[in-house]
Simulated scan of single mutants.
Amino acid sequence: MPDDARSQLDTSVPHSARIWDYWLGGKENFPVDREAGDAVLRILPGIVTSARNDRAFLGRAVRFLAREGIDQYLDLGTGLPTVDNTHEVAQRATPGSRIVYVDNDPLVLLHARALLQSSPEGSCDYIQADIRDTGTVLAEAARTLDFDRPVGLMLLGVLNHVLDDVEARQVVEGVLSALAPGSFLVISHTCDATTENLDGEAMRRAVREVMERGGTPICARSPERIEALFAGTRLLDPGVVSCSLWRPEPSPWPQEEVPHYCGVAAVP
């Protein structure tokens, strides 16, 4: 990693993207991230399964959008590159797909530029910006995407870092307002539902644990609050559900209910 990029990193506090990378078995994390990740594991032993199911949902959602004719994607809150990133799934289905990744973490964008290589027929671009700055996001993304045509808007594991519900909806609405009819909205989000298989209080304790360690601000929302983020769109079946239960396919890990919920919606 170049010295100028490393100088921008704060390795004294945990970072959500690096904790996620640790749970997925990646190498782009530091002791402080592993300590925070292990603390969460003690409270939520199934969080690794949850993270993997969230990643598998990304693949199923992008393949679905590709079958619906989507060949442009705006991925907000990219996270650290791992297996089957948005452009890899999309370009396997439609080699000419164009993808724009957005993140505000210099480490994420550094690795994105190095590792997220487009197919020859398609295109990838990378924007360092806060997703709440929708004007900048849209202006920069327009260099690669044609907003007169449908776009797949991906918000996976990122709106949980926008703590205020109104502000989170404004982020979604601000981007949706620029999208053509026929676009799709894809969201996944940490969830504090209490069900036969999920312990909502344990999720809330895990969130507090990360916050108290100085980590990236994060919240868990109920299924109802997550569904509210889809306002103005048409939720597709099966609605807002556990990531493991959204149109499941055969998987190498258990497809049990997990505390990451998701949904896919059509933009009217």
Rank of each mutant, 00 (worst) to 15 (best):
D237A: 12
S12A: 15
A141S: 11
P150Y: 00
E173R: 12
P14R: 06
L115H: 15
M154I: 15
E257Q: 08
R34A: 14
L236W: 05
I19F: 08
E256C: 07
D84R: 10
D103R: 03
A168E: 01
G26S: 09
L116S: 03
E256K: 08
L163K: 10
N85K: 04
R213D: 08
D71A: 14
L185W: 02
P106D: 04
R67W: 08
R225N: 13
T94E: 12
A36P: 05
T82F: 06
G25Q: 05
T190C: 14
P248D: 11
W253K: 09
E209C: 15
L80Y: 11
E140S: 13
V241Q: 00
E173L: 13
C191Q: 00
N104V: 05
G214I: 02
G152V: 09
G79S: 10
Y126R: 04
D133A: 04
P217F: 00
E121K: 07
I43R: 04
I99M: 10
R63P: 01
A265C: 06
W20E: 11
E209Y: 08
R98H: 08
T78A: 11
G200R: 02
G174E: 12
V137K: 01
R113G: 13
D54R: 12
S251F: 07
V267T: 12
C124L: 06
V108M: 05
S50T: 14
R92H: 15
E212M: 08
V62T: 01
R132Y: 09
L115F: 14
Q170W: 07
P254C: 03
V240F: 00
E140Q: 11
V241S: 01
E257H: 03
W20D: 12
H15L: 04
Q128K: 10
I226A: 01
L107P: 06
N160S: 13
E121G: 03
G59W: 03
P268G: 11
V151M: 07
V171G: 06
H260T: 15
H111D: 06
A220L: 08
D165S: 13
V264Q: 01
D75E: 12
V175Q: 00
Y22H: 11
V264F: 00
R208A: 14
V210R: 02
P81I: 08
D33R: 12
A231K: 13
A202N: 01
L74Q: 05
G239E: 04
R132A: 13
V207F: 06
S50K: 03
A61T: 12
D148S: 14
A266Q: 15
A168V: 02
H87G: 01
I19V: 15
L116F: 03
N104R: 07
A114Q: 13
L153M: 11
E68T: 09
R60T: 02
Q128M: 11
A228M: 05
Q117H: 08
D192A: 06
I70T: 10
L236K: 02
V241C: 00
P45L: 04
G25C: 06
D165I: 07
V48Y: 00
T82K: 07
W246R: 00
L229H: 01
W253I: 15
A90G: 11
V158L: 07
E167Q: 14
